[in-house]
Design a protein around this nucleic acid. Structure first.
Lengths: 348, 348
DNA sequence: GACGTCACAGCAAGCGCTTTCTATGTAGAC
DNA sequence: GTCTACATAGAAAGCGCTTGCTGTGACGTC
């Protein structure tokens, strides 16, 4: 049989109430008693029953982290930072919290279901990372859920995700639009006039914002965009490879390719190289995010660095109530343009 | 107030027992009654109380996944695969399980604490990924914990981690030794005789096994290893960069560098390049794991492909009892040597 | 027509903990 | 020496759910 609080109490010759208080440490217990209890806990190798405790106390020490793709370092880095602040074992925080990383795979249903599951577990807080899905119906459902969580006193923090007004969520958004603009601006200043753009999945906020930034830059410089220059795909290498081939087919005269993120950019590089083009001599390539491997591409990737770890850490702290929410419950985090070898002026 | 089972029961004009049975679907309930209950659930927007249910049923639907570094795609890929089989929302499995990804950061204490936390939550199963720490005391503590979990009827699966005999855990290990040997063998056959090796952290099984494989290959070919040729570091790019500079300082005549994994190899490439050496003309470089970005290195990285996703999926299925454990509770998964551009014969 | 069989539904006893309220012993205050 | 105050421990009432067991009609059987 499993050891219960009562067993410990019996062994320590105290009441279950006292054992509970020793374990939770929020009520005065005489030092000698405490010791006796701790000794019994140790001897019996007692492990608290989490569900029972959560039920009785009406709170749990689970914290949910929703990510779109856990195999993508973009999310891995954020999740890692969030978790380190959540105060899991060894974290800075006192209590021992269990971070629950949920991989939605970018699916609306899973996103929603995970939120319900978290709600069901009475999670103490929830952090949602990365871009949101822009389907109106889904968004309404999500907002309702978030609202409900917030109303139940859970802290809901969005990290790299646009604010959902009226949901009570705190948002740390990335300035994807500004970053996208700056990046394209950089290419335009280098002299590029025919720029391909490999966007992410259509219905993502991240995709839209980055693309808008790109177009802002084009417009600001009076460059009329050719519809053939934009291709949508997934946020992975493969997609970048395929999209680039498509772009080259549509317009072989492109002198620059801007990718939705670094992985996509790597795929683009591979495709360009296979088509016999040199980077950046024939075609410049730019990414987004500045993931660790980007600097190792050859040539190193020009990209926009997003402070993933910092933002995640902050989101984690806010979720735990250890840092104040930004005024208005929202703040935008800027990216930083990293100019490296993969971009240069077009030939001629 | 939050809605409880009793509220739903009242509204549907049935007993709480019936509502519970409708929700769990493991007891005959008349169709008309079921509908009435479901309607009430919907109208009241009822969400089951997970802890209460876990307490009463003495099981929870949490499944723990321990990873060393969630920001590392090596673990992200496995975690993703495990989770997809765990049957989280949208997964193949029926029940809705919550995968809890725990990031140990490679710390022994956190590893242990997370296991306790999972035990506390009465997790249904636990999957541990990646190499284990080789400290005798820590290993004993871990084994005891695993044993306890297994004894409590939880399924414990190791994925890419050596078996801990007598713990009742099921192990899917990677043949790191064989892979390491094959890799070095490849270099030797190309004609290399002075090979640097950048190992991972000392006390990891993965580190040791890969290094042993490397040495096996050297020994098999009668190459006497110079102690200066091995440097230990972390499993990241930075470490690879620094270790390579150190190797070059110790012996500038090395013609090949074998890295503990792909990230380390990328760092090595950067360092070699900065030191004015060309890859593979001057120095060959090899990695391990074959992470997605490895093929995009220039030149593409020669490495050992580990079937991370497949192994993870299998581990997930075994953890859920949807696939039989391998005979003897252990099976070794081979890696596949991927020869690419980063290795070639030494000059001269 | 009396009786066993089913198919459902409800009762009620927990599951293992937290926490409010109450009891008790001791120490200082006058 | 009695009284108040304080520190500490215990009793007991749940927290919201599951489930074994106990009805209770409807149906079929001889």
């Amino acid at each position: 049989m499993t050891v219960t609080l009562a067993d410990v109490a019996a062994r320590a010759q105290v009441s279950p109430a006292t054992v509970s208080r020793v374990l939770n440490g929020n009520y005065p217990v005489a030092a000698s008693t405490r010791e006796r209890v701790l000794k019994a806990v140790d001897e019996l190798d007692y492990v608290l029953n989490g569900p029972a405790s959560a039920l009785a106390a009406a709170t749990s020490d689970l914290v949910g982290i929703l990510v779109n793709d856990i195999a993508d370092p973009f999310f891995g880095i954020m999740a890692s930072a969030i978790q380190s602040e959540i105060g899991g074992p060894g974290g800075r925080a006192g209590g021992e919290r269990l971070a629950v990383v949920c991989n939605t795979g970018g699916s609306p249903e899973r996103e929603l279901t995970y939120l319900t599951l978290l709600q069901r577990q009475r999670a103490a807080a929830v952090v949602l990372t990365g871009g949101a899905i822009e389907d109106a119906q889904h968004k309404a459902a999500m907002d309702a859920k978030l609202r409900k969580l917030a109303d139940a006193g859970k802290r809901v923090v969005l990290c790299g995700r646009p604010q959902a007004p009226e949901t009570g969520a705190i948002a740390l958004t990335f300035d994807n639009r500004g970053g996208g603009q700056e990046l394209t601006e950089h290419l335009i200043r280098l002299g590029h006039r025919r720029l391909g753009y490999i966007a992410g999945p259509e219905e993502r906020t991240t995709t839209r914002h980055r693309l808008e930034g790109h177009r802002d830059a084009l417009a600001a410089h009076g460059i009329e965009e050719d519809p053939r220059w934009t291709v949508h795909g997934r946020y992975d290498r493969r997609s970048g490879y395929e999209a680039t081939l498509e772009l080259l087919r549509r317009d072989p005269s492109l002198t620059a390719v801007v990718a939705a993120n670094d992985s996509v950019a790597l795929g683009a590089c591979a495709a360009l190289r296979e088509s016999g083009r040199r980077i950046p001599d024939d075609v410049s390539v730019a990414g987004f995010d500045d993931l660790p491997f980007s600097i190792d591409a050859v040539p190193a990737l020009t990209t926009v660095r997003l402070p993933l770890a910092e933002a995640g850490a902050r989101a984690g702290r806010i979720a735990m109530g250890r840092e104040e929410a930004p005024p208005g419950g929202i703040t935008s985090v800027r990216g930083e343009l990293m100019v490296r070898g993969s971009t240069a002026g077009p030939r001629g």
